[in-house]
Simulated scan of single mutants.
Amino acid sequence: MATHTSEHHKYYVPEPSPWPFMLTVALFLMLGAAGFWLNGSTTVAPYIAAVGLAMVLVMVFIWFRDVVHENRTGAYGVQEDRTYRYAMMWFIFSEVMFFAAFFGALFYTRMIALPWLNGEGEKFFTNVYLWPQFEGAWPTNGPGNIGGDFETVNAWHLPLINTLLLLTSSVTITWAHWGLKEDNRWKLCLGLAATAALGAFFLYWQAVEYIEAYEHLGLTLGSGIYGSTFFLLTGFHGMHVTLGTLMLIIILLRCLKGHFSSHDHFGFEAVAWYWHFVDVVWLGLFIFVYIL
């Protein structure tokens, strides 16, 4: 009996798995081929990138299946649950630092580099010797009118709609969490489905916004420092919304199968944490990229 108790409290270590290696190969194929594709190689690179993407999806599905099976068979205890929570906290912190770097670049450009280029300060005469016609107003495509003239996206149109969508999604996922704590499966699944749908609508309107920016506003990645920071910040956020929406769909499917309970549902909580993080980042984007 003592031996059984000792073994029960051991930290669970899974059997060696080929999936991390296979996923690494798939990511290498997908990203490497995508890089060649973006640089003009359109013969084989698109097909290799598609194969790599398919492999990534298959590997992630199989890996998720194994982890779910471990959880459902009771392999995880209190210590494993604590480890997963710490890991998710550190992951979100790393994502905060990721976006902080881009917000920092935006701040540096607007508050430091732009005034220098405009001639502010006793030691900076770039406006006199290099770009005498340059006016340090934001938004800018830099000295030399890089990428041509452009217009900014109207903050009170599609960006406002997307802000309302994400704010509403924070409410629906919280509502779903309450349903899970109450063991109300209908409330849980409806809240998750609504959150995933709102995420999908957000991505649709962002795609419409990008098309409008490229085709009608002249705003592209090549539109100087404003264009590059705009698309890097909003594009990476859109990628995070995409991943978050996929995770919500996976959690919804698990809930429909009867997974999770009011006392054991960290998989749901991890996705909810991530989604709230995505919402907060968007509020920063809406204020500092679209409005100011």
Rank of each mutant, 00 (worst) to 15 (best):
T174C: 08
L164E: 06
T174F: 14
I146M: 12
L165C: 06
M22D: 08
M97Q: 15
W273S: 03
R72F: 01
D264E: 11
A33H: 07
V271T: 15
E122F: 13
T24Q: 10
G77K: 03
R85M: 10
L165D: 00
F93E: 07
F288R: 08
L285C: 03
H259K: 12
R185Q: 09
L285K: 00
N145P: 04
E95Q: 11
R65Y: 08
N162Q: 10
R82H: 05
Q133E: 12
V280A: 13
S262K: 15
V51F: 15
V68F: 08
L253W: 09
G74N: 06
A196M: 08
Y108F: 13
L117W: 12
F236Q: 02
F260M: 15
F93D: 05
G244R: 01
T242K: 00
Y11G: 06
F268V: 01
V25S: 08
A45I: 02
A50M: 11
Y86I: 15
E15W: 04
A101Q: 14
G258L: 06
L158R: 03
A137S: 13
S94R: 00
E215S: 13
Y76I: 05
A54D: 07
H240T: 06
V271I: 15
T140M: 03
A113T: 09
G148K: 09
T109N: 09
G191V: 00
Y204C: 10
F64P: 05
T163A: 08
E269M: 11
P132G: 08
F231R: 02
V289R: 00
V96T: 10
Y226R: 03
P16H: 04
G144E: 06
Y47G: 08
V78W: 08
G35M: 14
T242L: 15
G191F: 07
S17R: 06
L188D: 02
M88L: 14
K181C: 06
I146Q: 12
G227Y: 01
Y274Q: 00
W116S: 09
H276V: 01
R85Y: 08
V128I: 15
T126V: 12
Y11I: 14
